[in-house]
Amino acid sequence: MTMLFGEAVASRAVPVPSRLDAFLSVTEFDRPTLVIDTDIVAERYAALKRGLGRADLHYAVKANPAREVIARLIGLGSHFDAASRGEIELCLSLGARPETISFGNTIKRASDIAFAHRAGITLFAADADVELDKIAANAPGARVYIRLIVETSQADWPLSRKFGCDRDMALNLLNRARALGLDPVGFSFHVGSQTRQSAMWAATLDEMARIWHAARAAGHDLSLLNIGGGFPAFYGEPIEAPEAYAAGVMRLVRARFGDVARIMAEPGRGLVAESGVIVCEVLLVAHKSARDAHRWVFLDIGRFSGLAETEGEAIRYQFETPHDGLPAGPCILAGPSCDSADVLYEKRPMALPLALSAGDRVLIRNTGAYTSSYSSIGFNGFPPLDVVAI
């Protein structure tokens, strides 16, 4: 299976770096395991940082909180976007400086805000007046940015209305933050997960820029623009190479926002997804009836043990089997649990070799993001996803 790279839009496939494959070839696994190559993380960080230029790269810890990944990124000078006290504690315990961490979740426990403030973190997100009240009470004088809701997105997986507020509320929240003694420094937004080409950001940036300029016209001296995540990974459809992608996004940002004092970006998936491979096993291949057009292939990993992003079949993982190159046919792919929702691909069946059978080892490529962090703790007695970093 392959990943796409190139100077602009990738048009050819190259093998996953040999260090990872060499490790897989000599290692036995007795349960589903995610193997992360931290060298690939470092390479992707360097490429994105070159493309982002002067923008600060805040790794979205939720994408993969493996200690080895966080430690490697700290060594490279990365900043971090944390969604919880646990993620803040993780970063600090490995040597991250508090000034490099933003508390980016707009839904925070008051005691966790107080903890972050005591730890030296000064930058917080909000999208509601009561959240600003909590921040003012527990982190007096903190810098805050207001998260905007995105109505226009070309992402494969647009985000819901759970986060962000509209233009009028955003302007009111800037005023409220100032009245509470906070420092309202700017806005944030998220273009949507897996926005495959940088050009797909244009409509969202147009929408966000109108609010930005309205706030400035209203007298707010904004200094921070947080463009969030959305940086893509390869799941079968062409994507731009990371450096070219990030540079393209920054050109679009500059054209609409001008010379912003500080820009933040929060790659998660685009930074770690292609560094990881899940090793799993086929448990059963079967038909439901003599008339069944498709085989059912059951793996020992499913939606509750790491593959939650198959929800809606939005993310199409890349599978490698011992029988690749032999005749293949469509199959419905499912996990091992006793839950009828534990089906990975059914609306668009996955083409896998007809020779596939129970006991075969299967590699799921580009699974370094949102797998271990989504893995449940023992649903149906199945163990959570193991993680090995090299």
Rank of each mutant, 00 (worst) to 15 (best):
S372C: 12
V185A: 11
V253Q: 15
I149S: 11
C280E: 13
R72P: 08
G141S: 09
I121K: 03
I377Y: 07
D81I: 01
E237D: 12
P322C: 03
L284K: 08
G219E: 09
I332A: 02
L90R: 00
L123D: 13
E151Q: 04
K62L: 13
L224I: 11
S78E: 14
I390S: 10
R291N: 06
C91M: 04
A199M: 07
A265P: 10
T152R: 06
V362D: 14
R54E: 13
D37S: 07
L326N: 00
W201Q: 07
T195F: 12
R44P: 05
M1A: 11
L90V: 00
A83H: 02
A203D: 15
A328D: 13
G192V: 09
R31S: 10
A351M: 05
V9M: 12
A214L: 05
L92A: 00
P238A: 09
R348C: 05
E99C: 01
E28M: 01
S102C: 04
M350F: 00
S198L: 11
H117K: 02
I36D: 14
Y317G: 01
R348T: 01
P232Q: 06
L148P: 02
A273V: 04
T321L: 08
R251T: 15
D166Y: 11
D324V: 00
R316Q: 14
G381R: 02
R44F: 04
G120S: 10
G270A: 11
F298T: 02
L4E: 12
N172E: 15
P384N: 06
P384M: 11
I36M: 14
A247K: 06
D259F: 01
G230M: 07
D324F: 00
Q194C: 08
S102N: 04
L123Q: 14
F304C: 04
V249K: 11
S275G: 12
A202S: 06
D183K: 05
L48S: 07
A82C: 14
F382L: 14
V297T: 01
R97E: 14
E99N: 05
G325C: 02
P383L: 09
L307Y: 06
G186K: 09
K108M: 12
R72C: 09
C280N: 06
F80P: 05
R196W: 11
L20Y: 07
R167H: 15
R316W: 11
D206V: 02
L333S: 02
L354V: 00
T27Q: 12
P349F: 02
A177S: 10
H117S: 11
C91L: 03
W296L: 06
T122E: 15
T27E: 15
G53S: 09
I227Q: 10
E281Q: 10
A255S: 15
G236T: 09
I113F: 04
D342I: 04
A265Y: 10
P232I: 02
G104R: 01
I113N: 09
N366D: 13
A265V: 11
E87H: 00
V144H: 08
A155S: 07
S102T: 02
L182V: 03
P158S: 03
R19N: 14
L94A: 03
P65A: 09
T27N: 08
L92S: 00
D127S: 10
D127R: 05
G51K: 04
A177H: 08
P384G: 01
E313H: 01
I36W: 08
E311V: 04
V130C: 12
A369M: 04
I239R: 06
R143L: 12
